[in-house]
Design a protein around this nucleic acid. Sequence first.
DNA 1: AATCCAATACTACATATTGGGGTAAATTAC
DNA 2: GTAATTTACCCCAATATGTAGTATTGGATT
Lengths: 211, 211
Amino acid sequence: MEDTVTTSRIVIVEDNEVVKDGFALLLNGIDKYEVVNSYIKCEDALKNLKSDSPDIILMDLELPGMHGVEGIQRIKKELPEVNIIVITVHEDSDLVFQALCAGASGYITKTANYSSLLEAIDEVNAGGAPMSKNIARMVVESFQKNQDSPLTKRETEVLELLSKGKSYSIISEELFIHKETVKSHIKNIYFKLQVHSKAEAIEKALKDKLI
Amino acid sequence: MEDTVTTSRIVIVEDNEVVKDGFALLLNGIDKYEVVNSYIKCEDALKNLKSDSPDIILMDLELPGMHGVEGIQRIKKELPEVNIIVITVHEDSDLVFQALCAGASGYITKTANYSSLLEAIDEVNAGGAPMSKNIARMVVESFQKNQDSPLTKRETEVLELLSKGKSYSIISEELFIHKETVKSHIKNIYFKLQVHSKAEAIEKALKDKLI
DNA sequence: AATCCAATACTACATATTGGGGTAAATTAC
DNA sequence: GTAATTTACCCCAATATGTAGTATTGGATT
């Protein structure tokens, strides 16, 4: 009698055949993992997604044809419950956040050691989100605001509301101050940030993590 | 000759004295860690911050007096280089994000096992961001967009730019389409989201993770 | 006590933006 | 080949925005 409950159905998407087959060989050598299929393109993986019905997909981002980020998006749309772990050489911050936004549940960088791959698979199965050290730090730091903001507390508050698309009138109502006071604050914000419009202010504020 | 390079100066802020002293005892029993001081309140930790000059602060969030989230903020303002690891029983999502926004570099939940605490310390020292499984998953999921958006790709694009404070004119320039087309898209967005203004649309979009 | 900064509020003015009502062609996707 | 998407245009009135000033108050710092 097979114990299917503890066996993870795994699909690999990786254009480097040596790496792809290496992963498959490694994983198939362990009872609790089963590589149901492996592909060199997202397009192929998508075609067989339903029949493969993987629990976990290991995928590279730099692939021939469709980019991995879009691949993640499409795969998650079709099979929302699948856990996708990105395995790549890229630590580029934009790419990391794009992949996570697209629906990746983990992001680990390719290293010489295979044990971290196995740990990552076990970790998503346990409801976690495996990430390499640097990636985890990048992700956590993305939440943190600049501690040396030139703006006062009130100005920051106003700018935050402005960034939510609220008008001067609405901001004044929410902060229980006069509309003209809001205008004063915004004038000061624009001067401090050296900008001349809402869009520029928000852009700079996001870039400098002032809000 | 002491090897100060590999010794981590640690401060503990924890109101449960048994836990506090337990941590201190555990860490002081290992050469590479040195608990320089431990407190039951953030206020006390802040007073001695400069003289303690810790590399790492382990802190609870629920504390008498100042709340841990504000404590993190103040500590990071004074000592930006310190790595703060939150150690708490709370897995409440708001609290997690507040702590990370305030400047925490790690967030682990209190468990019976002490080895995860030691691992967490080593991980921040290595430039990582230690998190419990559930916390990591919460953090990663916070990036993910709703896969069942009622909006089309173009509409999402328009709404994204709108949420950055850009006017119809600017959006039309950036997307190389006519301003009237932008208006059409926005009219459709408002209809689909059942809203009647920019602020409402952005609010709903953020709430439903459409952007 | 003197000074600075933050937060508040006002006047005035020109221009730009927004939201609502319609309609409809061209393109893309299934 | 039909449906959905993307594109573009008309009209209109109300509201919002950005700029330029001035000025009072309260709290903190020195």
